[in-house]
Structure formats: C-alpha cells, structure tokens
C-alpha cells in the first residue's frame, strides 16, 4: 500500500513536469492556432544554458536566470523572425517550419557545446532525500520540482482568471478577431504569450537537466508527450492541460510499475515479460486514441471558438 503511495508521488512529479511543457504549448496552440514542434528546442536551450552556466560559475542562483533568459530570448527571436510569418499559414506550413527548426536546433547545440552529454548536477542544498513516506526517502530535488510546478500552475491560474492580461488571453483563445476588434494589441499579445510559453519550457528544461541527460535531441520525446497531454486535455485549455498532465503522469507511472505483475497473473512469465513493458510503452497513446474517439475535442475544450 505504501508502495502505491510512493508511485502516486512519482506520477505527480512526472505529471507536473509534463504540465510545464504542455502549458506553453496549449496557450500558443489555443491562442495563435499554431502547431509548434520547436517547443522541445526551447526546453533543450533552457537545459543547456542552465547546465553550462552552472558548470562555469558553480552557482545555481546564476544558472537559473541564465537558462530562463536564454529560453525566453530564443522564444522571442523565433516568434518575431519566423512565427509571425506562420500565423496566417495552415497547419502544414507550421508543422514543417517548426520541424525544420527542431532539426536546426538539435545540431546547433552540438556545434556550440559539442556532442557529449553535459554534466548537470543537483545543487547542494537540494542534494539529499526527504522522508515523507516512511521507508521511502524521496529526492529533495524532485520534491522541489513538484512544489515549483504546482506554484507555477497556481500562478498561471491567477494570471489568466484574475488579471486584465489574462482576460485578453482568454478572449484571444475563444475569439481572436473579436479580441482584436475590442482593442487588444494582437501582435504584442502573441509575442507575450509565446514568450510565456518559452519561459515555461525553459523552466521545465532547466529543472530536468540535473535528473535527465542534457544532450542534443532531449526535447523531442517530452515534446510528443506534451502533445498527447494537450490533445487529451483539450487544446487551448490550461485547466485541461493540468488535469491531463497529471493523468498521463499517473497512468504512465502505474503502467510501468504494475502492468508486468498484472499480466503475470494470467500469462506465462516470459510472455508477461514481453507484453508488460510493450503495453506500458503504448499505454498513454492508447488512452489518447480512446479519449479522442469518444471526445474528439479533448476532455476540457475551451468554451466556444
């Protein structure tokens, strides 16, 4: 039973991480109606710059703003340089241009920082473990990720639900033309929203650095998972992204932990050894297909387009 609780915690941490990626993606998607495959590159840029700064200065307090700033700057540059030309285009152009950006960035980091994976370490003050559940000390760093992630989620909720800018964003998500007609500066709004998304992706990337590998292409796999999240949650909905991210985190974690023993109950052991992990790796895609089959617009589509 305790183990189940531990796994729930693991799922929460994974889900929070996914949420940070998905939040920016779903905003950009919902408001500008742009498919952004380069979102994973912003995650990668945040991770690289943070790790490199940390190695150079030994100061995590310097490394965090450096990583965030780099992701933000990269985001603003590609928004102004490339995305502005893509807003009026169809999804195909967007998919291809951002696919091209991903290819470019994956090699660019290798040109700048070399092919070797970068060593990023957990800062000293978060290096140990915290005992929350008896017998299963949890890494302090991951706990910090959960806290930061939940705080960011709350902050985003406040911004969007309570502030004037949030109102404009909401207006933009449900009816772009109307928001513009009512006097919102759409050009600035788009840049701000994109920058916000870049910032969140950079934050996810720099937090991921010390526990995953900082390497070329690190953003690709999490990007696909983030897409799964926003599609399940309903494109453009922060609330949907939050719930779906946690759900995907839980489902994936539980699948990995318990599918193999579950299959072992009714399959011979070698068959279960093969089928367990196979189904576990497909599980969230199966869930996504099922959700879309019954609710093509996702679980929490933003009201009215």
């Amino acid at each position: 039973m305790l183990l189940l609780l531990v796994q729930a915690f693991n799922g929460l941490q994974f889900g929070v991480m996914l949420f940070l990626m998905a939040a920016g993606l779903t905003l950009v998607f919902g408001i500008m109606n742009v498919v952004n495959l380069a979102h994973g590159s912003l995650y990668m840029v945040g991770a690289y710059v943070c790790a490199e700064t940390y190695v150079a200065t030994h100061s995590f307090l310097l490394a965090i703003p450096a990583g965030l700033l780099a992701a933000l700057a990269t985001g603003v540059i590609i928004e102004i340089g490339i995305f502005r030309a893509l807003y009026t285009r169809d999804h195909l152009d967007q998919v291809l241009a951002t696919f091209g950006l991903t290819l470019m960035f994956n090699d660019l980091v290798r040109i700048i920082w070399g092919s070797d994976a970068i060593y990023a370490t957990v800062p000293k003050f978060l290096a140990g473990q915290v005992v929350i559940i008896p017998g299963a000390p949890y890494p302090a760093y991951r706990l910090a990720i959960i806290v930061v992630g939940l705080a960011v989620a709350a902050l985003l909720y406040l911004i969007i639900a309570r502030t004037r800018y949030g109102m404009i964003i909401r207006a933009g998500a449900s009816n772009r033309v109307m928001a513009g007609a009512l006097g919102a500066n759409i050009v600035v709004l788009y840049t701000v929203v994109f920058a916000l998304g870049a910032l969140l992706a950079g934050l996810a990337g720099l937090m991921a650095g010390p526990i995953f590998t900082v390497a070329s292409g690190m953003g690709d796999s999490i990007l696909i998972l983030a897409f799964v999240v926003i599609v399940i949650g309903g494109i453009g909905s922060i609330r949907g992204a939050f719930i779906a991210a946690l759900a995907v985190g839980f489902i994936d974690t539980m699948g990995r932990a318990y599918l193999r023993p579950l299959f072992g109950l009714f399959l011979p052991s070698t068959a279960a050894d093969n089928a367990g992990p196979a189904v576990a790796s497909m599980l969230i895609y199966i869930v996504m297909a099922a959700v879309l089959f019954f609710r093509p617009q996702g679980l929490f589509p933003p009201r009215m387009r």
Binding site: G100, L101, L103, M104, F105
Partner: peptide
C-alpha cells in the same frame, strides 16, 4: 542544421 535552414 543545414537541412533545417533549407526547410524553414
């Protein structure tokens, strides 16, 4: 890198 630029 070059393919990406060409594509964009």
């Amino acid at each position: 890198f070059f393919l990406g630029i060409i594509l964009v």
